[in-house]
Design a protein around this nucleic acid. Structure first.
Lengths: 117, 117
DNA sequence: GAACTATATGTAAATATCCGAATACACTTA
DNA sequence: TAAGTGTATTCGGATATTTACATATAGTTC
């Protein structure tokens, strides 16, 4: 395995991005930004959070390069830094759904087996 | 925003998967499993970790449904639970690379501007 | 069953994360 | 410059994560 310092560093950034995604609130935030940029208060109300909590999560997303905030007059509008972030999230969600569906089908079979017995 | 309990729960699982990916060691582990299953000692040597550390990370990956371990005789062989996990990781890595490249190009420009001035 | 090998877990210390509440800061408008 | 609105930070405590070291468990082979 290549243990060069470069790989090490890039892998840490890679993990950092994943860490940015590793919170339900932040995932909901990113999906909330799919269609259009939103300001903090908007997100705060949409996600039903205390405003400081919204800001803190946005800071993490910013630090990991997942969102970009730009001030327009009184507001700071946040938007996705890269649309492909949603692709990645969708892919992981698909993997999850397939797993849940598979488990559900196991329960199905289990039930019908029980009925047979 | 739909705040149904179901969405809440699925989003937590979604975040859980991301959390499984949110560690450099675990990312290297997953990439180490791309081509073929490996046992714990194999991974331990490849990643140059203490064996208990390897086991612990594998446990997390297992819990998040990212890898599957199956015993064959004396060894437990771990493999990716779903190849698409690598697709997702690759996509995130691409996003990261593009960002790094972009930043590097900024530095480039900055340098050449300095030379011009 | 004893010895052996592979893998997992307990524990403790260091470190990080999350949240709520209060407060500070930034920008705009009057 | 003062008031007002939007956004960020600080602090505290509770909780979780990571790691190393030691040890336990599980399965195999003799």
């Amino acid at each position: 395995m290549n243990k060069s310092p470069l790989l090490q560093e890039v892998t840490e950034l890679h993990a950092g991005i994943c860490n940015g995604l590793a919170d339900p609130t932040r995932i909901l935030m990113l999906y909330a930004l799919v269609d259009e940029p939103r300001n903090v208060n908007d997100l705060t109300e949409t996600l039903n959070l205390p405003q400081p909590t919204t800001s803190r999560h946005l800071k993490i997303l910013r630090q990991q390069g997942l969102v970009i905030g730009e001030r327009e007059g009184l507001y700071i509008y946040y938007r996705l830094a890269d649309k492909r972030i949603i692709e990645a999230l969708d892919l992981l969600r698909t993997i999850l759904n397939d797993r849940l569906t598979y488990r559900a089908s196991l329960v199905e079979n289990q039930n019908s087996n029980q009925k047979q017995e």
